[in-house]
């Protein structure tokens, strides 16, 4: 009987498997398990894993922490009319980045090969931290301070693009990040 008619054997769950099916199920299941265990494996032994360190924090408190960092480690300002501070925090320190409609604040200058605790939080809507061309993409959520221990490599100027739709100015929300020797 075809698939649009009732099965011949009422008790379909006792019908025998075809050999090809059985073989395929075994192969597919094995592959599924490999894919599954890749994730905990990489979590333990891989180098790129976002981890889950995050705290609830009001945008106001987060903005204060960011401002404190900016006053302490500002090295210069960049941009035409709207000046954005560039900060060069010491290796190993807590580095704060604000996402808001429609800009990133401040511009970070990090040293290659050094490790930082990078914080990300949005002041309003959801935003997307997208570091180009490195292609690291992270959701930035208001009210949650997410901490990432990150080690920049390869000195250069990186693009920072918002890739979570955040309203009419979405595509103007670009900035940069410097990695220096």
């Amino acid at each position: 009987m075809s698939a649009i008619e009732p099965p011949v054997q009422r008790v379909w769950w006792k019908q025998p498997l075809d050999r090809a099916e059985l073989l395929w199920i075994i192969l597919a299941l094995a592959w599924c398990l490999i894919m599954f265990f890749m994730m905990p494996y990489w979590h333990l032994y891989g180098k790129q894993d976002l981890g889950s360190e995050a705290y609830r924090m009001s945008p106001d408190d987060y903005a204060k922490l960011t401002e404190a960092m900016v006053t302490k480690y500002k090295v210069r300002e960049e941009g035409g009319d709207q000046k954005v501070p560039v900060v060069h925090p010491p290796a190993g320190s807590d580095v704060y980045l604000i996402a808001r409609l429609w800009s990133w604040y401040p511009i970070l200058e990090l040293e290659s090969g050094k490790t930082y605790r990078l914080h990300l939080e949005s002041m309003d809507y959801l935003h997307g931290f997208s570091l180009q061309p490195e292609n690291i993409n992270i959701e930035v959520v208001p009210g949650y301070d997410r901490v990432l221990t990150i080690t920049p490599e390869h000195p250069g100027t990186y693009g920072l693009v918002c890739n979570e739709y955040c309203g009419i100015g979405h595509s103007t929300m670009t900035s940069r990040l410097y990695v220096v020797k």
């Binding site: 960049e78 941009g79 954005v84 693009g159 920072l160 693009v161 918002c162 103007t172 670009t174």
Partner: peptide
């Protein structure tokens, strides 16, 4: 990015090409 009207960054203070 998806859902992005313009990727040239024209007019942005810090465009990414």
């Amino acid at each position: 990015p998806r859902r992005d009207w313009d990727i040239t960054g024209a007019g942005n203070a810090f465009p990414y090409s």
